[in-house]
Design a protein around this nucleic acid. Structure first.
Lengths: 151, 151
DNA sequence: TCGAGATGGTTACAAGTGTAACCGTCGATT
DNA sequence: AATCGACGGTTACACTTGTAACCATCTCGA
């Protein structure tokens, strides 16, 4: 049964495997320490680095489904790491921003993330990560370009 | 608020985003056409390319959790795309193999996958995918090496 | 000014997932 | 042969997720 197809060199599979592995590896670093889910961490990261944002903006920025954002924001609010501020001119919109406690948490985890990435860089050699990210950007560009016609 | 941390260049995030995007893009190709979930497709791919395997082997080969494998196998069996054969010497083990129908389905989807990858190669230029996969392999190697100590 | 449709955001529901506990079998030790 | 731990595989449970429906508000054109 000679089959030239090999899962091992199929890009969607390879990307997923690597992503799962690295996700697991990094989430171990903060899941227990901060009791936070990945969507929450992403929302926190977006708010921490960009500043005040709306839920929709968080969604596009960190590319999460709006229900995920909604739940992550609710969780962060519950923890008093962010507060909502209403928009004067459009009452559908809510501006979100981190509280002092939220900002503090953000800084700690961002630190963790930088250390993590630095250790990866040390292991892989300088520039390797940049090359990978460039490759990923190419893939994303190709996918999004191809999707236009299909929508 | 000067923060040098940027989610956009954080590898776990970048990998996940790319993986989600490509997964979505390819799964559209078969989810509707074959009514199959990703774990089922992975198990099918493993069985189709390797031949007879046990559930545990499928798990390591396509690196899926054993409950995922168990459910995927049950689904494929339900659809009569695979059958179980008992091991003479060890009755815990079940050898799994595709039926004629299963093999046929496998060939069709493998075909789809190859076409998909070819179109990516066409869009990105020859060799780009190989470079990315090499980079991913480096990352995985680094992660697994680092994990040894931590286990 | 009054709709019709678009948009920001939330939520009910169904499906997929991992953890942990479980069953049956095997192998080694006694 | 009896026992104990390891192993292959399944399942109950809780939790996460996306889909679709929903509410409230806004916008634009008749």
């Amino acid at each position: 049964m000679p089959d030239s197809f090999d899962l091992e060199s199929f890009l969607p599979y390879r990307l997923n495997r690597a992503a799962e592995l690295i996700s697991l590896s990094f989430s171990r670093e903060y899941k227990q320490r901060f009791q936070m889910t990945r969507p929450e961490w992403r929302a926190l990261a977006a708010l921490g680095s960009v500043g005040r944002m709306t839920a929709t903006e968080i969604g596009t920025h960190s590319n999460m489904h709006k229900t995920k954002v909604s739940r992550a924001v609710a969780a962060l609010e519950e923890r008093r790491w962010l507060k909502r501020r209403e928009n004067e001119t459009d009452r559908r919109v809510e501006h979100l921003e981190l509280t002092a406690a939220g900002l503090k948490a953000y800084r700690e985890i961002a630190d963790l993330a930088q250390t993590y990435q630095a250790s990866l860089e040390a292991a892989l050699g300088k520039g390797a990560i940049a090359r990978i990210e460039a490759g990923l950007a190419d893939v994303e560009r190709a996918l999004l370009a191809g999707a236009k016609g299909r929508r």
